[in-house]
């Protein structure tokens, strides 16, 4: 060790401590798996080896002197010694060849390794672990799980509290607002692809529509207006969608979630895209529980 080397190593240490501090402050487990751990190890290796070895040679400018037998040639005043290879360099070179052999024949055998196979194993292992831990997840667990999915996948448009960011997207704190009900009655709806088919426009109008809107937006509490009969023929007298034949207009039930995530619905930002390819059935269930909890 010499002074230069120590300074360089101190710099490396500061860099690594800063890196680890930032990562840990984001709640990331550095030892979560071999990929995270090897990356940190690799980063440390880069910093430490470069600092130590380059400064070892730079220090020789202080401590050593040039020597050796000069070659006969001379180019524009530049000479050349016939010194031997530095042994550390030569052995390391050999070492990397051996490592490359190991990597290609044992680590990731060129004739056998498959990254898709490894992916399948990763997914399988995850599913097994998930099954055993959360086989009979209770309501509270599902809600918590749903919340974290919501924050990652939904909150951009629907807001972190699910309020729809002042009308940019569906407000989950209520099933429907009065304006939404009126809009739907006026324009009809056919985006969710329920078995009952599309809802025609202008099923009600004027005072009737107004009455229905207030009733539905209020969570269908109190006395049912007579004009609701036209709605009840499809959505049921209780508004629960006749057992999955049409949308539930009282709450965000599981069937509604399935249809909403799989089809495109109109909002102010855009028609809500389909998330069929990104949300698994378990996640859908968790999201349902969480979104229902928002409306209460």
């Amino acid at each position: 060790m010499n002074g230069l080397m120590i300074k360089a190593l101190v710099f490396s240490a500061i860099l690594m401590i800063a890196t680890i501090y930032v990562v840990m402050s984001l709640d990331i487990d550095i030892f979560a798996d071999s990929i995270n751990a090897l990356t940190m190890g690799g980063a440390i290796a880069i910093a430490v080896l470069t600092s130590a070895i380059s400064m070892k040679y730079v220090n020789q400018m202080k401590t050593d002197t040039a020597s050796g037998e000069l070659a006969d040639e001379n180019w524009d005043g530049i000479g050349e010694y016939k010194n031997e290879l530095p042994s550390g360099w030569a052995y390391s070179f050999l070492g990397t060849f051996i490592w490359a052999m190991w990597y290609g024949f044992f680590g990731y055998p060129v004739n056998a390794y498959s990254q898709i196979g490894e992916y399948n194993e990763e997914v399988l292992a995850y599913n097994e672990k998930f099954e055993t831990v959360h086989k009979d997840a209770d309501e509270a667990t599902l809600k918590e799980m749903g919340e974290s999915i919501f924050l990652v996948q939904c909150s951009q448009c629907h807001g972190v509290t699910g309020d729809g960011l002042s009308g940019r997207a569906q407000d989950f704190t209520a099933r429907m607002t009065k304006e939404q009900v009126l809009y739907t009655i006026e324009h009809g709806a056919n985006e969710l692809s329920y078995p009952m088919g599309s809802m025609p426009p202008m099923m009600a109008s004027g005072k009737d529509a107004e009455e229905i809107a207030i009733y539905v937006a209020g969570g269908m509490k109190g006395e049912q207006p007579a004009s609701f009969a036209v709605c009840a023929s499809c959505h049921g007298a209780d508004g629960k969608g006749s057992a999955g034949m049409s949308p539930d207009i009282v709450s965000y039930d599981g069937t509604l979630m399935k249809h909403a995530l799989g089809h495109r619905r109109k909002g102010r930002i855009c028609k809500m895209p389909s998330f069929k390819t990104l949300i698994t059935p378990v996640q859908e269930k968790a999201l349902t529980v969480y979104i229902q909890s928002l409306a209460n």
Binding site: T19, V22, V23, L26, D27, I28, I30, A32, I35, N36, T39, M40, A43, Y126, K129, F130, H134, E144, M145, S148, I149, L151, V152, Q153, S155, Q156, Q283, A286
Partner: peptide, 21 residues
């Protein structure tokens, strides 16, 4: 390193911990 680890980070349920933004 931070970004790479955030993309991979999962919560205790195995769901992604961070949205891209």
């Amino acid at each position: 390193i931070t970004q790479g680890m955030m993309w991979r980070a999962v919560d205790e349920y195995g769901n992604l911990m961070y949205s891209f933004i």
